[in-house]
Design a protein around this nucleic acid. Structure first.
Length: 417
DNA sequence: TCTGGGGTCCTAGGACCC
DNA sequence: TCTGGGGTCCTAGGACCC
């Protein structure tokens, strides 16, 4: 049996842990640049605020209903996520961290009644961390997802153990709420008279294969109770790593854009070092505002191949800047830039280049020292000169809560009133 | 004025190999 | 009249997830 643990309204719930005044009132958390609504409390959902909605379109409602608005605070959310995952490990050694706010665990060997066990997990996470969660329990991961959705509407825990429970759960799940059915498939399926998960399991395998590939087939089997998707307890290394940001304001000066691109490049290099990998491809892109009505949308990108795979700040950054120079067109107003590294392999298995020689030891020592200093004294304590000091490209974050758990100078204050 | 960021998997078709 | 069989690699595009 699998259990899917999912935090309720995760980012909003993180904000509430350190600010109890946010309980019971509408709260939303915004995406980077304070652009879109990406997390909503139940009260905010009830007001009709939608996931992914641009916040400026709803500012009247937000003001009128006194909705509390926060910029995203990933240092806080990442730390709370770790706490939740570590607590879950006490309940099962077999855990797959599926996303920042979700985990699957395997319940093999659990002798207690599953629902009672689930309630136990819920109470513990609530009491120890202050995070509300929902738990779905079922014989396959896809069914656990479905059970989780039902759990949230009820007492927080729901288990699919009998055939009747399975059929009931499927009949009460709209097809668009199935894990693996997105917008396109939902439209297609409804056109064929498939409205519930139960309808989906009654489709012919042949039809599903043809229209939804092998993944659709797997999904059907999972929903019928045959487990096809295993628990992945060890996280495979990433095959591509991206760092991309919209600018705080539109930019046309290549010197400023260079600062952002080199910062993204060093961030990618640091992420590579963290997973002990190197990359051979460095892709850089810039684009103008896709929503602009006055300027045509322009997207430019290029992929630079390194002679030898690397995770060094200076090598990745150099490649990214060279790429930027090639794709940059003057006199356009750019809105966003990004760096993506790919063709990733383990750092101890680098294919050397026959014609060019690198002293990689020297570069590795530099990286080790910068990683150490930046870990100890804070991000960007040491950086490349080309990253500059301009603030123009930095994201807008006007309503960020303190990094309560990860910075000494932002730690919560307790006063005796 | 104002619209996020970071990933994965699968398939079809073309180019190429022996 | 008439033209094999078996395979790999790469890319673009489409779908999905949080």
């Amino acid at each position: 049996m699998f259990a899917l643990i999912d935090c309720n309204n995760f980012y909003v719930s993180c904000e509430r842990i350190f600010n109890p005044l946010l309980e019971g009132v509408p709260v939303v958390v915004l995406s980077n640049n304070d652009g879109c609504i990406i997390s909503r409390s139940n009260e905010a959902k009830a007001l009709g605020l939608k996931m992914g909605e641009p916040v400026f379109k709803r500012k009247d409602l937000i003001a009128q209903q006194n909705v509390r608005v926060y910029s995203s605070n990933y240092a806080l959310y990442g730390d709370i996520s770790h706490r939740v995952m570590n607590t879950l490990r006490d309940f099962s050694p077999f855990i797959e961290i599926y996303s920042i706010d979700e985990a699957f665990i395997d319940l093999k060997g659990i002798r207690t009644d599953f629902t009672i066990y689930g309630q136990n997990i819920r109470k513990t996470i609530q009491k120890d961390i202050g995070m509300p969660i929902g738990i779905g329990i079922a014989p396959t991961k896809s069914l656990a997802k479905i059970a989780n959705r039902i759990a949230k509407k009820r007492t927080g825990v729901f288990a699919i153990e009998t055939e009747n429970q399975r059929l009931w759960a499927l009949a009460n799940t709209p097809v668009e709420d199935i894990w693996g059915v997105g917008r396109r498939y939902a439209i297609l399926l409804k056109k064929h008279g498939v409205n519930t998960a139960l309808d989906f399991t009654n489709l012919s395998t042949d039809w599903i294969r043809r229209h939804m590939t092998v993944q659709g087939h797997r999904l059907k089997e999972e929903l019928r109770g045959k487990s096809c998707i295993d628990l992945e307890t060890i996280m495979p290394p990433k095959k591509s790593i991206a760092t991309t940001r919209a600018f705080g304001k539109k930019l046309s000066d290549i010197e400023v854009i260079k600062e952002s691109v080199s910062s993204h490049a060093t961030t990618c290099a640091a992420k590579l070092r963290k997973q002990k990998s190197v990359a051979r491809f460095v892709t850089i892109f810039i684009h103008t505002d896709p929503f602009s009505e006055t300027q045509k949308y322009v997207l430019r990108s290029i992929t630079v191949t390194l002679p030898v795979a690397s995770n060094s700040d200076s090598i990745i950054t150099k490649a990214a800047i060279n790429g930027l120079k090639k794709v940059f067109i003057p006199n356009l107003l750019y809105k966003k830039a990004g760096v993506i590294v790919s063709e990733i392999c383990p750092e101890n298995a680098i294919q050397q280049n026959l014609f060019e020689h690198y002293d990689s030891n020297k570069l590795n020592s530099v990286s080790k020292v910068t990683d150490f200093l930046n870990a100890k004294y804070g991000k960007s304590t040491v950086k490349l000169a080309v990253q500059g000091n301009s603030r123009d490209w930095k994201v807008k974050q006007e309503k960020k809560s303190p990094a309560y758990t990860t910075r000494w100078d932002e730690i919560i204050e307790v006063r005796n009133l």
